[in-house]
Design a protein around this nucleic acid. Structure first.
Lengths: 228, 228
DNA sequence: CTTAACACGTGAGCC
DNA sequence: TGGCTCACGTGTTAA
C-alpha cells in the first residue's frame, strides 16, 4: 500500500494493531453511579451516554498518545550513557547534544581520511563513544615533521596513557609524517583521557618542530625505518 | 563547584538564571475578582491568598517545564531532515532511529579502517547522511579478486550512477584488492542511490570471481599498474 | 462531524 | 515543608 510522504507510521501502527482495550466498560461506568435520579435518567440518558463515552474515548486516546511519547523517551534513555532516571527535559537536552556530536563526528571521520601528511601540523583525537555497547575505540591522528625518535616517543606516550594501539597507519612524504592510530583504552578510561592524549600529542609535535631542520636526512631515515 | 553525578544541569540552569518572571502579579490577581464577599474575605483572606498563590506558582512552574521540554523538541526538529511540522511522537521515533543509525555508522567507519584486502569478498556502502548541512558524502568499499579491467569497470559504474570520486584508496595484497572510495553524489541523489551502488558493486564482484583463477598473473598485473 | 495533536491546570508523589 | 516532576483529564484547534 502506498503511503503519503509524511505518513505517520507511529500513529497508524497503533491504529492498525487495534489496541483499543479500554480499562473499564463504558456502559457499566455510568450505571454504577449511586446518586443518580431515575427521572432524569430517561431524558438525559442518551445525551449523557454520548457525552460520557465521547469523553472516555478522548481520554483514552490521550492516554495512548502519552504512552507513545513516553515509550520513545524511554528508548532514548537506553541509548544514552547510563542514567536511566533522568527527567524528560534534561534527557532531551542530552539527546540534542548527542545527535549534534555524532553528526560532527561522522563528518570529521570522513574528512580526515586524506592520509597524506599535510604541510601543517595537525592533531585529531576522537572516540566512537559507544556508551552502551562496550567496544570503545579512539582514533588519534598526528601530522608533523618526521624525526628519528618520533615513533618510540609515541609508543612511550601511549603506553603511559594505557592506550593499546589496535592498528597503526603511517604515511610519510617529503620529510613529513602522518600517523593514524586506532586505540583501545584501558578499563580505567575517562572522558579526560582524550584531553590527556591530545596534550601528549601536542608536546610530541613541539619536540619535533624544535629540532634541526634537515629534510634530506629525514627522508633517508624514513626509508631506513621502512626497510627494517 | 562540584556536582553530584545525576546533577540536573537543565533544571539548575533554569534556577541559576532566575527566570521566574511570572506573566502577571500574584497579589493583583486575587483583588481583581469581582464577586467576593467582604466578610469572608477577612477570615479566608490569608488562607485563600496562600492557596491561590501556591496554585499560581505551581501553574507557572509547570508552564516553564513544558516550555523547556518543547524547546528541546524543537531543537531536535531542526536536526532532522526537513519536516519541521511533525508531531511529537513521530519526531521522537525518528530521533531514536537517527541516534541508532549514527552510532552504527561511526562504529562501522571505525571498523572498516582496516584497509588490507581480506580473503572474503566484501562490500560496504554508507553515507554520512548529513541531512541539514549540504556536504553529503558516500563511502564505498569493495574487496575482491583483482583483475585487468576492474578499475575501468569501477569507473564506468560510478560514472553511470553520477557519483564523483573525491578520493580513492587502493590496497592490494596477494592478488586481492580493496578499494575504498569517497564519493560525492550528484544533486539528483536519492536514498535509493545507495542501493543501486551496492548492487552495481555486487555485479562487479561477480564478474571478478567468475574469471580464471591465476593468482601469479594477477600479482604481476598489479605490479605493472603501480609502475605506470 | 470525526479524529488526532496540543497546551493547560491540577493532584499526587518524591526528595 | 517547598519545590519540582510526572500523569492525568479536559477544552480547543486544525485537517
Amino acid at each position: 500500500m502506498l503511503q503519503p510522504e509524511n505518513y505517520n507510521l507511529d500513529y497508524y501502527h497503533y491504529i492498525a494493531t487495534g489496541e483499543y482495550n479500554l480499562d473499564f466498560p463504558v456502559t457499566k461506568s455510568y450505571s454504577t453511579c449511586s446518586f443518580y435520579n431515575p427521572q432524569e435518567e430517561e431524558e438525559d440518558d442518551e445525551a449523557n451516554n454520548i457525552a460520557v463515552s465521547k469523553n472516555i474515548i478522548h481520554k483514552e486516546a490521550e492516554r495512548r498518545r502519552r504512552e507513545r511519547i513516553n515509550s520513545h523517551l524511554n528508548q532514548l534513555r537506553t541509548l544514552l550513557p547510563a542514567n536511566s532516571k533522568i527527567d524528560k527535559a534534561s534527557l532531551l537536552a542530552k539527546v540534542v547534544q548527542r545527535v549534534r556530536d555524532l553528526k560532527e563526528q561522522t563528518s570529521k571521520i570522513m574528512q580526515c581520511e586524506t592520509n597524506f601528511p599535510s604541510e601543517n601540523d595537525e592533531i585529531t583525537v576522537l572516540s566512537n563513544d559507544s556508551s552502551a555497547d562496550g567496544k570503545l575505540l579512539i582514533k588519534a591522528s598526528i601530522c608533523c615533521e618526521d624525526r628519528f625518535d618520533l615513533i618510540p616517543d609515541l609508543i612511550q606516550t601511549l603506553k603511559s596513557l594505557r592506550l593499546s594501539p589496535m592498528r597503526v597507519e603511517m604515511v610519510s612524504l617529503g620529510g613529513r609524517i602522518r600517523n593514524v592510530i586506532i586505540l583501545a583504552p584501558d578499563k580505567d578510561y575517562t572522558n579526560k583521557s582524550l584531553l590527556f592524549l591530545r596534550d601528549a600529542l601536542m608536546s610530541i609535535i613541539q619536540r619535533s618542530s624544535s629540532g634541526t631542520d634537515q629534510r634530506g636526512k629525514r627522508r633517508r631515515v624514513l626509508d631506513q625505518r621502512i626497510a627494517n
